[in-house]
Design a protein around this nucleic acid. Structure first.
Lengths: 245, 245
DNA sequence: ATAGCAATGTGTTTTTAGTACATATTTGTA
DNA sequence: TACAAATATGTACTAAAAACACATTGCTAT
């Protein structure tokens, strides 16, 4: 409220490149994928001297003429070719020394992508998938950002029907359970899992069967079509129960 | 990652006042208080022409040499004289046209203050408490920010022992229930409420009684002392149950 | 003093959700 | 045709949420 807040447009123009604009702002994307029963994220090799050999999140500075929410969509489009992705803002990180080259505050988003069915056009060959479980260290504060996003993902996945962004159109309950286990990092009881999912009432039975499995095939399901908004921007409000009321 | 991300320190210095710094970044504080069974927030009169007569949140631009988290503490200290307050980051708002005077991205924090027992030193007389329920419109996108913070507060208050930041040291279950009702905007059954609170195991029975009430006095409680970190920065992790595990 | 008011303080029942656990069935394969 | 590896399903126990009623305490007005 103090400074810019009280200025009229003309004054802002005048003072543009002074004190108030000494901070750059970026977005960083924690792009989750799922492959071979493992949760993965998409990383790019850092080319800062300080972080030689380390990987970092995909991100970019926000342009002066784009909404903050558009920035992560743009980053994903530029890096992967995808543009109908699930994205959700998580937290904004702004420690003084988080970026060695200057003052950069960054807003973290996480994204969920079905790796096997949207073929990514990885524009740079320095971009690769990494198993989340194997990641010990990243450039900048990106490990902290990743952990924060993973924590949020774990919350959300229990409450809202977003997990289906990581799966193909048709899937078996087994595949769904494997994915939950990969995200939550725990083993689940199959019978209780099925009851829980049934209770949530997110699925439609397709009356089709798996094939290409070396054992008894399971039924296939898809997510109910009214639960499938990809992006946060047009998200349907699914009220969580206020359990004290 | 594109631009600044790849620059070495010297290059950043050189390019400082160019494209990358055309966005200002601020924090805005949704400061919740509780008085006479109503949830309130602290607002300041907007002095932008565009928002003549409207109220706005307390905020300020982030200084190039302060952590993002320090900024809302500074704002609160400057505006209210308080410095041991509960603050939590909620969301970052950055629509292109949210600020009429220029491009400003803002990170919203909410704060909980016991109005009656920490006397605020309101440095400006344009700063006042307003009942949340009465607020229809605010300057900028501050109504959206307030609503987002209120929604987060409602979530958190069920999960974590933060509500006590709005109450005096000693309180009765009746006062606690009234406060929950004010925040959640619903009526609660007294017996079920007490059971629920007992279950959470947040309180210590002080074996003292209310006085100055025109009816049978209730017992007084305080929050368990190990549950009282005021700020997010040193917050104790209270694991929420992963109910599928 | 005492009747009435306005609270506090407690307990039971029903329903729903979570947890632990076992058996029969189906398909592919050796 | 027996076996391996899944799917599919049900029951009993426990915990929590929700709905609901009665006795008690302290103040106050008559």
């Amino acid at each position: 409220m103090d400074k810019l807040m009280h200025l009229k447009t003309a004054e802002v123009e005048k003072s543009s490149h002074l004190d108030y604009f000494n901070i750059a702002i970026s977005v960083d994307c924690v792009i989750f994928g799922y492959d071979k029963k493992e949760l993965e994220i998409l990383l790019i090799k850092s080319d800062l001297e300080e972080f030689e050999g380390l990987w970092s999140l995909l991100g970019d500075l926000i342009k002066p003429d784009e909404d903050i929410e558009s920035a992560p969509y743009r980053v994903l489009k530029e890096r992967t070719g995808l543009d109908d992705v699930f994205l959700e803002q998580v937290y904004t990180f702004g420690s003084l020394n988080r970026h060695p080259s200057g003052r950069v505050i960054t807003t973290a988003y996480y994204s969920l992508i079905d790796v096997n069915h949207h073929k990514l056009q990885l524009t740079e060959n320095e971009v690769h998938w990494h198993k989340v479980a194997d990641i010990k260290k990243l450039a900048f504060d990106h490990k902290l950002i990743m952990d924060t996003c993973l924590q949020r993902l774990r919350q959300q996945v229990m409450e809202k029907p977003i997990i289906f962004n990581l799966l193909p159109e048709k899937f078996s309950l087994r595949e769904l359970q494997d994915l939950y286990q990969a995200i939550l990092g725990v083993q689940l009881d199959r019978r209780n899992f099925r009851k829980k999912i049934a209770l949530k009432d997110w699925l439609v039975d397709l009356h089709e069967m798996e094939d290409n499995v070396p054992h008894r095939p399971g039924k296939l399901y898809k997510v109910k079509s009214d639960l499938k908004p990809k992006s946060t921007r047009k998200k349907k409000v699914v009220r969580s129960r206020l359990d004290m009321v």
